[in-house]
Amino acid sequence: MAEFFAMGGFAAFVWPAWATVIILMAAIALASLRRLRQTEATLTALESGASIKTDIT
């Protein structure tokens, strides 16, 4: 296992490269999903008419 993490002495390059890709892909995926959920919630509120009053005041 230690040998696997050592990556033949190139651990300092292989793991940051993979980490960059995993973190960026996860970040853009989570951000996009969160924005979709928020937009869906706003639209549901608008269409049900619940927010008309708050819009006026």
Partner: peptide
């Protein structure tokens, strides 16, 4: 997959803008 999620968000956001 990301494209589907983001396009859905964009289309719904436009619907909100039209409604408002």
């Amino acid at each position: 997959w990301l494209l589907l999620v983001r396009m859905r968000q964009e289309i719904l956001a436009r619907r909100i803008r039209t409604l408002q």
